[in-house]
Design a protein around this nucleic acid. Sequence first.
DNA 1: ATGAAAATGAAATTCATTTTCATTTGGCAT
DNA 2: ATGCCAAATGAAAATGAATTTCATTTTCAT
Lengths: 164, 164
Amino acid sequence: MLQTRIDDHAPTSRESMREAQEIFYKHLKRVGLKHTDQRDTILRTFLETRDHLSTDELFRLVRKKDSKIGFTTVYRTLKLLAECGLASAVPFPDGMARYEHQFNRRNHHHMVCTECDASVEFFSPEVNKLEEEIGRKYHFDATRHNFQIYGVCEDCRKKSRRAI
Amino acid sequence: MLQTRIDDHAPTSRESMREAQEIFYKHLKRVGLKHTDQRDTILRTFLETRDHLSTDELFRLVRKKDSKIGFTTVYRTLKLLAECGLASAVPFPDGMARYEHQFNRRNHHHMVCTECDASVEFFSPEVNKLEEEIGRKYHFDATRHNFQIYGVCEDCRKKSRRAI
DNA sequence: ATGAAAATGAAATTCATTTTCATTTGGCAT
DNA sequence: ATGCCAAATGAAAATGAATTTCATTTTCAT
């Protein structure tokens, strides 16, 4: 999925990477699972991205680093990452399961163009305030939210104007 | 999907129903499609709901009214309804395609319990303001949005406290 | 080093979604 | 009203993403 960023974050730094790995391996230990090279490679690959990746998209990236890693392993590792909060599923209207990594990236949202599927990230602290307020009001212990705005981007608007 | 409502809207009124039907049939005419009893039944059934229905769930409801209507027809009609804006897809984390009708029901949002999947509707005019502002800022022609808060509901919190 | 438990990955399975196709139906033209 | 034909229908088949199975390999505590 095409994606633009309006902010200018550097890719996950080496130290953050290590920190995330630690979270992952603590989780593995806690539930009695093992440390493997494949899981290492998959986590690293995932942290290097900033998109909403389908399992297959991540698999393709992983394969570039180690062509022997299978789809199934990527699929299962992504679930583990979601379990320990490093990844989270982003429901998109195309129905395919997409994940994005959550390490040091909370509180951003997406604007999706319904013509070309391009998406733009934006940050809005107000949304976080709302989450909190509404949780309190309805006695929910709110942990996260999902906010997407759909519309038509400038490019597509121009294109369709030209087409008339 | 279990669902609670915190507001107290009456089900779609007879007049609104007729209005929605008119929108639907104008759309059909516009794209050269025909008026059928099946489509009528499916639209009516859909408008009577207030949940996020999967195609299969709507099919089951429709079947109660006319057992001869097939799944495929419900599936296709739901797409038509989405085309003319009477239905819209709500992406949920379970990945199944779910629709809710949009007739006189814009601007509501959902809080979803991650334990029991129950959902509660809430209304927040602030979110609409945000949609507008952000659209303007990033030159998107914003048409709709999707806002869901995930958390643990009061009941599940009580249950898990008891379990300890 | 050894062995039990877990991981891996290819292949098979499941299941929602979508398409195909033979038949029926709606609605315009006559 | 009747005929025509494009569209609709629905059963069945196809598709494709997600998940499970299972034989083999690897990890790691001892």
